[in-house]
């Protein structure tokens, strides 16, 4: 099977700071991958490069064999680490927006999930709490039948019920031809839903392995192994 995401010597510098240092990486379809690393390790930079929000300083990044562009953006569903919902728009207007731009958007799915969380479609985002907006944004992103989901810190700073909703949504949405990349530093929370993990530190990939292999070989959880690898 060909990789859905592939990096070859991918490097990104911000001025003199090197955020990613010659990263080689390949993610196959049908996997749920944890992109794990401390803050500032390069997780967000990698995800932004995959989305074409940044351009590489050297090396290349391919999505289903192509450089980031309109074609790759059509198959990537991206949850940024910030809120992109305009305050003046209502949830319903945003559903219209997603429906217009993404042929793979399943409006009925989004409506059902909004209903399940009790989010009124007529309410404007400006009137929603921060947590509600985060949930609404996740619902929009997960209601696409994308080939690659890039979720940047989806569970950072949410309450346990929301975290369970997010993980449940990821599991229920699982599709053997799609991959999910979840970046986080809260490993224990996501460990059970992951197929494989990538440890990233100072812009380099330290470990890329399946969760089962780590537990078998190390006899400990990924969380414990992570602490061991990253202990300072």
């Amino acid at each position: 099977m060909s990789a859905i995401l592939e990096c070859r010597g991918l490097t990104k510098n911000f001025g003199r700071v090197c955020a990613l240092d010659a990263v080689d990486l390949s993610i196959e379809p049908g996997r749920v991958v944890g992109l794990l690393g401390p803050n500032g390790s390069g997780k967000t930079t990698l995800i932004k490069l995959a989305n074409g929000l940044l351009t590489p300083s050297a090396g290349e990044l391919l999505i289903a064999g192509e450089k980031p562009g309109p074609a790759s953006k059509a198959i990537i569903s991206y949850l940024p680490d910030r809120n992109f919902l305009p305050d003046w728009m209502s949830a319903r207007q945003m559903l219209d927006f997603f429906e217009d731009f993404y042929p793979d958007f399943r409006r009925d799915k989004a409506t059902e999930m909004l209903g399940r969380l009790g989010i009124e479609e007529t309410i404007r985002f400006g009137q929603m709490s921060k947590g509600t907006k985060e949930k609404a944004q996740l619902i929009l992103v997960m209601s696409r039948e994308a080939g690659l989901y890039l979720l940047d810190e989806p569970i950072g700073g949410v309450d346990p019920a929301t975290r369970d909703f997010i993980l449940d949504t990821i599991i229920r949405n699982y599709n053997p031809s799609a991959s999910v990349v979840i970046s986080t530093h809260l490993i224990a929370d996501v460990e059970n839903v992951l197929d494989e993990v990538i440890f990233i530190n100072s812009g380099r990939i330290v470990v890329h392995s399946s969760v089962d292999e780590i537990r078998e070989a190390q006899g400990k959880s990924v969380d414990a192994y992570f602490r061991e690898v990253f202990k300072c």
Binding site: L53, P70, A74, I76, P80, R82, F101
Partner: peptide, 16 residues
């Protein structure tokens, strides 16, 4: 819409 947080939505639309 393009250079603020909303840009994360706009620049990831399948368009150029």
């Amino acid at each position: 819409n393009l250079l603020g947080d909303e840009g994360y939505l706009m620049f990831t639309l399948p368009t150029n």
